[in-house]
Design a protein around this nucleic acid. Structure first.
Lengths: 340, 340
DNA sequence: GTGAAAGCGCTAACAG
DNA sequence: CTGTTAGCGCTTTCAC
């Protein structure tokens, strides 16, 4: 592969001039510029980003680090796509890392990203008070939290209004006449699930329904099977719920499988609302009522925040809260009403 | 951040020794090694991968490039995950790029990956004879094709037995008594869809059913909506098919939506088989019959091939063909039979 | 407007 | 076993 030196030699200028031709074209006379450009083309010159990064200043590495729990969770694929699309517009490339909610892997990848001199890191933090994440910001690497908050640290954050979304979901169920409403949620400390549970509680409370711990199941939010098991327990108990609020798409899938296996009919035997809207929510019978998160837009927004921080490292950190939509569909799968 | 020099100074050795302590620990006396390691720890030293890459030899950059059409397609998320898991085992990081089947984007990202000095590139090629892809291999960057073949170029490839899988799918439909079987496939030149169509044709032929062009729809394989439209045309025609073979999960979703919207019952009114098995195929009523691709394993295999090539750049290129499984499920969603 | 030279952080000879 | 040195390809003063 050809280097700056090759181009310089062939165009009969110094490497400094070639470098200028790339980075400060206006500081090069028009005819040498033309000559250099022609030479670059003929040599198929592709500047080494590695050398640029080693030499260049912070915030110019054109690399962005992304650590997500699991790319196979469509919620995160959406986020990744949103980030990537914005990054592409700025000629940034993205290093993708899957943490599996494993602090070891998070730490490893954070180190890798640092070693790669990325211009920034976007992630849903695993630990509420993880020191590695803190370290990253102390190293001066811009950090954007997405999907989950990182308390006690001033950091740009993009989240969804989990409490409000959950409140709308459960209120919808209550409006339909349900009184025994289960929630299948996570046993983790993530702000997202905490807040969804709060929304659930508030909806009950506002409607004078007592909180019943036997209706609450907490499982690993990544496991459809765990949620399936929990659903069995719920529905095969002596006093089963008449409705279930599923707090993410993976757990939702598990619950749907359990219901199908038991042979229950929706909504005759049990009503459902799922946090997350997925492409497949329209093909069930009837279509699933869902709390749609603007996942793709969250990714875009997070990436935009990142670029804003690069441009102005001094600006105040912001916490962007995006709204969900409650989507109820008719028999053909068309949305009937959409509440914020 | 601390550098080699910082460590060297503090440990009172030369930078070369520190470098050795990292890369060839056995060439350093045990007590200096211990001292250096302690110093590295106290300084929180994290070697710059960027400098290592600039200085070091080919095949040691610990970076892998990945260009896929769209991470939001779960088939590709699975592949990406498989690749990432194997890469993680070797301490490799992955740069993820979405091409949208757009040659411009593919070219851009290929240049970026080259500029980043990645050790290799894994992708499903967009063009059958794209010159940029060829260029990459001429640059000596190991290339692994996945999901689609790149003809006329000896290159490591991981594909699925598309023809056989499609043949099994359509044969299954024929076994159930169907004679008018539609296929919704792609108008692209990708080997995958070409071969699925071949399998479809062969199954018809082997059973003495004439190929009927009016039963064949070719749409953009990324568009559920196009497939939905095509399904409407198919099912609302004067002589509709009694079964439909959907050649990927996105088109399948479109078809399912169309069927639901028309109000047709499965399998009474129309039977279905989909290429791709998805988490949601078990929650439809009845469960969808699917040709399962080992997508995650394909990713793993591709990444393994990459590492094998790094270790032995001279070895012959291989084309790995993985088998699909035809999955027919009972009313609860449990697999009834699985044919290769 | 252009060139010479220093150096980013590291590895790999080459000496000792 | 350890240190010295020469770059990897590039950007950026500082001269001219």
């Amino acid at each position: 592969m050809s280097t700056l030196r090759d181009v310089a030699k062939k165009a009969d200028v110094s490497i400094a001039t070639v470098s200028r031709a790339i980075n400060n074209p206006d500081k090069v006379s028009s005819d040498t510029l033309a000559r250099i450009r022609k030479t670059m083309r003929s040599l198929n010159y592709n500047p080494s980003r590695v050398a640029q990064r080693l030499r260049g200043n912070k915030g110019k590495s054109k690399l962005l680090g992304l650590i997500i729990p699991d790319i196979q969770n469509p919620f995160y694929s959406d986020i990744v796509r949103g980030i990537e699309d914005v990054a592409y517009g700025k000629k940034y490339a993205v290093i993708l890392c899957n943490s599996d909610e494993n602090p070891e892997k998070e730490r490893f990848y954070l180190n890798v990203l640092h070693a790669e001199s990325v211009d920034g890191v976007i992630l849903p933090p695993i630990h509420l008070y993880g020191k590695v994440v803190k370290q990253i910001t102390e190293l001066g690497i811009p950090l954007i939290c997405i999907d989950r908050k990182f308390p006690k640290l001033s950091v740009d954050t993009v989240v969804v209004n989990n409490k409000k979304g959950a409140f709308a979901a459960v209120s919808h169920l209550i409006d339909e006449g349900h009184k025994r409403i289960s929630i299948i949620t996570s046993n983790t400390k993530f702000s997202s699930f905490q807040e969804r549970k709060e929304g659930y509680k508030k909806a009950l409370e506002d409607n004078g329904i007592a909180y019943d711990n036997s209706l609450v199941k907490e499982v690993d939010p990544r496991s459809s099977d765990d949620a399936k098991e929990a659903t069995f327990e719920l529905l095969e108990s002596t006093n089963p719920p008449s409705a279930i609020f599923m707090t993410n798409n993976l757990m939702g899938l598990g619950t749907l499988n359990a219901i199908k296996q038991i042979g229950l009919k929706i909504p005759k035997d049990v009503s459902l609302v799922m946090f997350d809207d997925m492409p497949w929510t329209t093909i069930t019978s009837p279509s699933l009522t869902a709390v749609k998160q603007p996942s793709y837009e969250m990714g875009r927004r997070a990436c935009e925040l990142f670029f804003q921080r690069i441009e102005d490292p001094q600006r105040e950190c912001v916490e962007v809260t995006m709204e969900t939509k409650l989507i109820v569909r008719d028999s053909t799968g068309k949305p009937l009403k959409q509440n914020l």
